[in-house]
Amino acid sequence: MALKNERDLGFKSLLLGVLLTLGLFGVSQPAKAEYADVVINNYADAAGMRPAVFPHWFHRIRFRCKVCHADLGFKFKAGGNKITMAKIIDGQFCGACHNGEVAWSVENCAMCHSGIPGTPTHFHGSTLQRLVAPAYRPLDAKKASKK
């Protein structure tokens, strides 16, 4: 009885140890999503929805940048368009297409709201995010900013 307990204990701690090691490695693994995926989370979390995820790769196979960034007025800034559901159902932003005419309609909430809760608005795989240290400051930066 006592012996069995001790074995149990050994096994349990082995398991715990292995888990601990894995855990320590797991923490430092960065998310590696597809290049140019955008998580949009200005409001979604606060309203109890998962953040929206916008895949550039998927859309650029179907549309040139011009359609969204010139015709539909999406600014080149993640989170900078202050997209809300009110605007979407009025045919703005995602709603210009996700209306059951150009693409599937807006009631497919979970197709867009598929992000891990708590993920901040960000652009995935951007060069700036991947820099090991901040970008360099040119020597003449002061001169340039005085002009």
Partner: peptide, 28 residues
């Protein structure tokens, strides 16, 4: 891993069933 499918990319929630309906980049 390059071009991971949405359920393995670290930003899509796997407890959301629709995540599994999204296309994997390599397929496209």
């Amino acid at each position: 891993k390059h071009n991971p499918p949405p359920p393995e990319d670290g930003i899509h929630d796997t407890s959301n069933e629709a995540t599994f309906s999204l296309q994997a980049p390599l397929e496209a």
